[in-house]
Write a protein that binds this DNA or RNA. Structure first.
Lengths: 228, 228
DNA sequence: TAACAAATGATAGTAATGCTATTATATTTG
DNA sequence: CAAATATAATAGCATTACTATCATTTGTTA
């Protein structure tokens, strides 16, 4: 994917890091190899010690950028949603027709991630795998309410809000725009997971059928006709 | 909820435990207080040591029943789905009309859990809280494929299968019965979580509106009229 | 270029976790 | 009553999730 604007920085809540990883070479290496390591071994088996060793440094250096691995996960997932939000806006902003706009949004949400060269040290495809496998662990904790108050989930909430507003614009009298929006965003990740590990629990076989499933779900719910 | 049959035992895959907790008083106490402890402190902060202390015993005794806390979680969630499946069958089996049957199934799936006196030592409401907050952690692991092969998720898959078949019976030409079924089961838990922690991401305010949302979602997708 | 600060790296230490192993004490059963 | 079984108590070990300290490198600026 080629960017129109080249100097975009994804803004992530400053509380998620001790020192901005984008501010130094080491910081970027932590993020880059952190993504690779988590997608390889999974979040449970991921440790700052392993990451330090991997980047030819050590634990204490990683701790200078992130308080703990939970905050690191929140940083990564926030970055992802910021990036995805940017894409959503980029691809839907100029569309006037509400139905086309929503359709395009669903396409962006369900399409697989291509490598985005604008953020050279981030492998968005690997990051998406992390989202699918680990995202819910970032909020399914006993600290969720406090962290929510501190703004850790703002970007995701904004993303759901954008989709909700598109639904609302198309059908102002539909009573569940927020529930539908959050169901689609969470559901898309879940269906991807099922495709990979529990194919008997889904009819989707690739991102195209995933898109068609959600498009059908959303547009029939809103009682809007679409062309197949 | 009153049972028609009084001597029902929820069958859980034997590989999830070392020794059947239902076979002894200690085993039942482990399950009973395990549910209470996990719902209090969350799965991350739950340890066998804490559980042992709580039941006036110790770690090693708990290990004689369950290999580790991950298997314990799988045991609990399997038990829950077995119990829920039993309720689903109980409440839908005698219904002939496919639309009414599916509607009733959605009611069972979205309704809050009442205490079921047939399994006196299990607090189903607390267990449901565990499902909402911890269920996805049972399969979002690097071991999911091996564990799936070993049958740890059979009951949940059967549950999704039942819902899928009801959808299929009602609308044989609908192309996504499995995806819709898995979306509803997972989505119901997710929307419950949002109601509690992220009310701005959902329009549901109680189990009734949750039910209405999913009923509308499913029946419009299947192009079947329902009365409100 | 000396001198100082900032960033990074290396090492050590601590409490908690996730176990395993051993032994002692109840409890049940034949 | 003896033997078998279940439970309890204790100890130990590797790993994790940190914190603290000190050494070294790198970068800045007077």
């Amino acid at each position: 994917m080629k960017h129109l604007i080249n100097n975009v920085k994804i803004a992530v809540n400053e509380k998620t890091y001790v020192k901005d990883p984008e501010s130094s070479d080491l910081g970027k290496r932590i993020v880059q190899h952190g993504i690779a390591l988590i997608s390889e071994v999974g979040f449970e088996n991921f440790t700052f010690r392993k990451l330090g060793t991997r980047i030819g440094s050590n634990e204490s250096s990683v701790y200078r950028y992130f308080e703990n691995k939970h905050k690191f996960l929140i940083y990564l997932t926030s970055w992802y949603w910021g990036w995805k939000e940017y894409q959503l806006v980029l691809h839907t902003n100029s569309i006037q027709d509400p139905a086309l706009k929503l359709e395009r949004a669903l396409k962006v949400i369900t399409e697989p991630v291509e490598k985005d060269s604008s953020f050279s040290y981030i492998d968005e495809a690997a990051l998406y795998q992390i989202l699918i496998n680990e995202y819910s662990k970032s909020f399914l904790t006993k600290e969720v309410d406090r962290e929510n108050k501190e703004g850790y989930f703002e970007i995701y909430k904004r993303m759901v809000g954008r989709l909700r507003d598109m639904i609302w614009t198309l059908k102002p009298n539909y009573p569940y725009p927020a529930s539908l929006a959050s169901s689609v965003l969470e559901g898309a990740m879940h269906q991807y997971f099922l495709m990979e590990h529990f194919p008997s629990l889904t009819d989707c076989r690739d991102n195209e059928s995933l898109y068609v499933f959600f498009r059908h779900l959303v547009f029939t719910s809103l009682n809007v006709q679409i062309d197949d």
